[in-house]
Amino acid sequence: MELAPPILKAIAEQGYTTPTPIQQQAIPVILQGRDILAGAQTGTGKTAGFALPLLQLLQNQPRPTLPRPTRVLVLVPTRELASQVYESFKAYGRHLPFITEQIFGGVNINTQIKRLAKGADILVATPGRLLDLMYQKKVDLSQVQHFVLDEADRMLDMGFIKDIRKIIQALPDKRQNLMFSATYEKEIKVLASQLLHDPVEVSVARDNKAADKIKQTIYPVSKEDKRELLSWLIGHGHWQQVLIFVRTKHGADRLVRQLIKDGIRSIALHGNKSQAARNRALQAFKQGEVTALVATDIAARGLDIEQLPHVVNFDLPSVAEDYVHRIGRTGRAGHEGEAISLVSPEEAYLLHGIEKLLKTKLPRVADTGYAPVSLDNIKKPASKPRPRRAGGAQKKNW
Rank of each mutant, 00 (worst) to 15 (best):
H95K: 14
K90L: 11
L81M: 09
L116T: 03
V124R: 11
G106Q: 14
E87P: 11
A125H: 08
V107T: 15
A120T: 13
I99T: 13
V107I: 15
R79K: 14
I109P: 08
P127L: 14
G105E: 07
E87Q: 02
A117N: 14
V76H: 04
K90R: 15
V124N: 01
L81Y: 03
S83H: 11
A91K: 13
G93Q: 10
K90V: 15
G105Y: 15
F104S: 02
L123P: 06
A125T: 13
L116D: 11
I99A: 15
I103M: 03
V76Y: 04
V74T: 07
E80A: 01
T100M: 10
L123N: 04
F98L: 03
V74F: 11
V74N: 10
E80L: 00
Q102A: 12
N108A: 06
A117G: 08
Q102K: 14
L123T: 02
T78H: 10
I99W: 13
R79C: 00
A125R: 07
G119L: 01
F98R: 09
T126S: 13
K118H: 01
N110P: 01
F104I: 04
N110F: 00
L73T: 04
L116W: 13
R115P: 00
E87V: 04
E101P: 07
G105S: 09
I103F: 00
G106E: 06
T78A: 09
R79Q: 07
R94A: 06
E101A: 11
F104A: 07
P77L: 03
V124G: 04
I122H: 13
F89G: 02
L96I: 07
F104G: 04
F104L: 05
N108K: 06
Q102S: 14
E101R: 12
Q102T: 08
G119K: 08
T100S: 09
E80N: 05
G119T: 08
F89S: 06
I122M: 04
Y92F: 10
L81A: 04
Q112A: 07
H95P: 03
V124Q: 00
A125P: 15
N110A: 02
T100G: 10
R94E: 05
F104Y: 11
T126M: 13
N108I: 07
D121W: 15
V124E: 01
P127N: 14
I109Y: 01
R79A: 01
A91D: 10
A120H: 09
L96W: 07
L96Y: 03
A117E: 10
A82E: 00
I109W: 09
L123H: 10
R115M: 06
T100L: 09
Q112M: 12
I103T: 06
R94M: 09
V74E: 12
G119P: 02
G119W: 07
I122K: 12
L75K: 03
V76Q: 05
T126W: 15
E87L: 08
V85M: 05
V85T: 13
N110W: 00
L81F: 07
G105M: 12
A91I: 12
N108Q: 10
V72N: 06
N108F: 01
A82W: 02
A82V: 03
E80Q: 07
F98E: 03
L96N: 05
F104K: 09
Q84T: 01
Y86T: 08
V85N: 00
R94W: 08
